[in-house]
Design a protein around this nucleic acid. Structure first.
Lengths: 193, 193
DNA sequence: AAAAAGCATTGACCTAGGTCAAGAAATTAC
DNA sequence: GTAATTTCTTGACCTAGGTCAATGCTTTTT
């Protein structure tokens, strides 16, 4: 597993000294997931937060009628986990499933606290990341309310073109809030234009 | 202005000693807004975060075509402000407007930092609040994608019945992501059932 | 008290996207 | 390499919600 990705990621957004990395990495456990495997499901209390070294996962709600709503796709260099469940020890409402075979680095609550306390570079990285995610979510709320499926699809195509190459189309549809059929028709329409 | 509301709010969610309150309150400035007045608009850098003592405001995006998307209504005991713009000194994309005459307590960046450092009860309150807001946003993303306008309206009616009494209906429509006409028809339909 | 502005309602009509069903392609498993 | 799943596409039809325009009902303003 290529753990150096984690260092590269930390250094791209915060000031994290090379020398700290071995001790920092020790706080994590490597974990691999097979395609379609779940890391957790709604109702569980999340004990770990993960860094994605390789692969891709989907983070989604599933309601009573079996309708799934993907809220985001985690690819390489992303963190994933329900931070609230993790910090407050409450059952999560989310589900996390590997869309491809994945390599993850997972850290539990104690080690996470320890990392925030003892690695100032990580604290900086964490705080910046939290803020960014928060803004993204806020924008997503605004957009999902008033943009058409076409607008949302074109935005995704522009912002994450590589994602569309690796994710089955019906998951993309669920993420956009439309049916697979509608996405298929939408793509056909766009191809003709 | 009834500043004791702030103390009550802090104590309802964190451990905040009465004795600390006078010094804490000193970090804020009172501010009143007339109905329809804006506290800020898209493009400005937010210098303050506000606690709502009395009144109600709407926090919204406005896109190029003049379409507005309300992401939330702040009522008494809520905090409002674009935390990312505030912390990172970046221009905000949001607009904040009073829906009624409002009494606010505003705190600037320096005082906010000071408060987090020197009042542990406030830090506790802040961290809990941030997490909660984050979860709420995540849920909102899932819901706005797949729920019908009717479902969203009924949920709002259940969760914030008092809000519907004080806010003009066309704002509620914008919050739900539908037109005022559609909301009017939806309400008519529900009244008949 | 009258005029003006802002809101809510209603009707006629339109469109994006949903639903259900059937095949075609593409993967995966044996 | 064939069978079994999954995934994607297409067609026929339906519905929630949008658009535009007209008409009252409330608040404000003067």
């Amino acid at each position: 597993m290529d753990t150096s990705r984690l260092l590269t990621e930390l250094q791209s957004k915060a000031n994290f000294p090379d020398a700290d990395f071995p001790a920092f990495l020790d706080l994590f456990e490597p974990l691999t997931l097979k395609k379609k495997q779940h890391l957790y499901r709604s109702g569980e209390v999340i004990r770990h937060v993960c860094f994605v070294v390789r692969g891709c996962l989907r983070h989604y709600y599933a309601n009573e009628e079996g309708i799934e709503r993907i809220i985001f796709f985690a690819e390489e260099n992303w963190w994933v986990g329900d931070i609230v469940s993790f910090l407050e020890r409450k059952p999560t409402n989310l589900n996390l499933q590997a869309v491809e075979d994945c390599d993850l680095l997972v850290i539990d609550r104690n080690n996470f606290d320890h990392a925030l306390k003892n690695f100032p570079g990580f604290l900086e990285y964490y705080q910046k990341g939290t803020q960014k995610t928060y803004t993204k979510l806020q924008e997503q709320v605004g957009q999902s309310l008033s943009d058409t499926a076409e607008t949302r699809y074109l935005r995704l195509l522009k912002e994450r073109p590589a994602l569309l190459q690796r994710i089955p189309q019906h998951y993309i549809a669920t993420y956009l809030g439309i049916t697979p059929e509608s996405l298929s028709r939408l793509r056909k329409k766009l191809a003709c234009e």
